[in-house]
C-alpha cells in the first residue's frame, strides 16, 4: 500500500506540475498584464471608448443598454451619451453594419465583442491580457490593405481604430540567428513615430479602461457571482460542521 501511495503521489505531482508551466513554453506570445479595474469610473470610461471607437463595426449584441445602469449610469445618461442607433434603452447593443458588406470591406466580418474577453483567454494569459497587448501593438505596415498590422494578431483585418489617440507606431526590425544557422527578421520593438492625442502612459490607461469594460461585458454578473459565492461557501461550511456532528452522534454506537 505504501508503494502505491507513493506512486499515486508522484502521479498527482506530475499532473499538477505539467498542468500549467509547460503550456507557456509552446507559445511564444508574450502578453502584458492588463490592469483591469471594475471601478465605475474605469467601466464608464471604457463604455464611452467602446461606443465611440468600437461600435462603428463591432456589436455587443448580448448586452442591453440598460445593463449599463449596473456601472453607475442612469438610463437618461445612457440615452443621452451612449445610444446612437436606437431609442429603446432595453435594446441590445447591436450595430447597423451589414455582415455581407463588412466581409467585402475587411475580408472578414468584425466579430461581436460581447464575449471577446472570455474567448481570447489562452495558456499565454487572460483574455484581458491579450486585448490589452493587442490594442497597444498596432504598427504601420504599407503592405497591408488597411496600412496597419499587429504584433499580437499578425495580418489582422482591423485597422488601428484608436490611432488618433495613440499616434502611429513603426516596427523596429532586428535580424537574428534562429539557432539553426539561418537568419530571421523579427520585430524587436514598436516605436511611436507620430504622436497622437495622448502620451503613451495616458494611452495605456485608456486601453486599460476599455479592456476592463470588455471584461465586465463578458459576464456583467461576475462580481455578484463572486460575492454570492462567499455567502454560499459560508453556508455550506456551517452545513458541513453540522453534518459532521450529526454523523459523529449517530456513529457512536457502531462498534
Amino acid at each position: 500500500m505504501k508503494l502505491l501511495n507513493k506512486l499515486l503521489c508522484v502521479a498527482a505531482l506530475l499532473g499538477a506540475a505539467l498542468g500549467t508551466p509547460l503550456a507557456q513554453a509552446a507559445t511564444e506570445l508574450k502578453l502584458d498584464k492588463a490592469p483591469v479595474s471594475f471601478s465605475n469610473a474605469s467601466l464608464q470610461n471604457g463604455a464611452k471608448l467602446f461606443v465611440n471607437y468600437c461600435m462603428g463595426c463591432h456589436g455587443a449584441s448580448f448586452l442591453r443598454y440598460n445593463r449599463l445602469t449596473q456601472i453607475g449610469l442612469t438610463e437618461q445618461q445612457i440615452k443621452d451619451n451612449l445610444m446612437f442607433s436606437t431609442d429603446k434603452v432595453g435594446e441590445q447593443m447591436k450595430i447597423a453594419l451589414r455582415r455581407e458588406d463588412a466581409k467585402q470591406w475587411f475580408g472578414v466580418a468584425p466579430p461581436d465583442l460581447t464575449l471577446v474577453a472570455r474567448a481570447r483567454a489562452s495558456e499565454s494569459g487572460t483574455g484581458a491580457d491579450w486585448l490589452y497587448t493587442y490594442l497597444r501593438s498596432f504598427y504601420r505596415d504599407d503592405t497591408r490593405p488597411t496600412g496597419w498590422n499587429n504584433v499580437v494578431f499578425p495580418n489582422v483585418g482591423m485597422p488601428h481604430a484608436l490611432w488618433s489617440l495613440q499616434g502611429e507606431q513603426e516596427a523596429r526590425l532586428v535580424t537574428k540567428d534562429d539557432g539553426h544557422g539561418k537568419k530571421v527578421t523579427e520585430i524587436e520593438k514598436l516605436e511611436v513615430v507620430k504622436p497622437g492625442l495622448l502620451m503613451p502612459e495616458e494611452y495605456d490607461a485608456q486601453v486599460a479602461d476599455l479592456v476592463s469594460f470588455l471584461v465586465w461585458m463578458g459576464e456583467p454578473s461576475q462580481e455578484t457571482r463572486r460575492g454570492l459565492g462567499w455567502i454560499v461557501l459560508a453556508a455550506l461550511g456551517v452545513l458541513a460542521v453540522l453534518a459532521y456532528l450529526l454523523k459523529h452522534a449517530y456513529w457512536k454506537d457502531v462498534h
Binding site: 452545513l239 458541513a240 453534518a243 459532521y244 450529526l246 454523523k247 449517530y250 456513529w251
Partner: peptide
C-alpha cells in the same frame, strides 16, 4: 448521515 457529510464537503 455519513453521505450528507460527504455531500457537504
Amino acid at each position: 448521515v455519513k453521505d450528507i457529510f460527504g455531500v457537504s464537503i
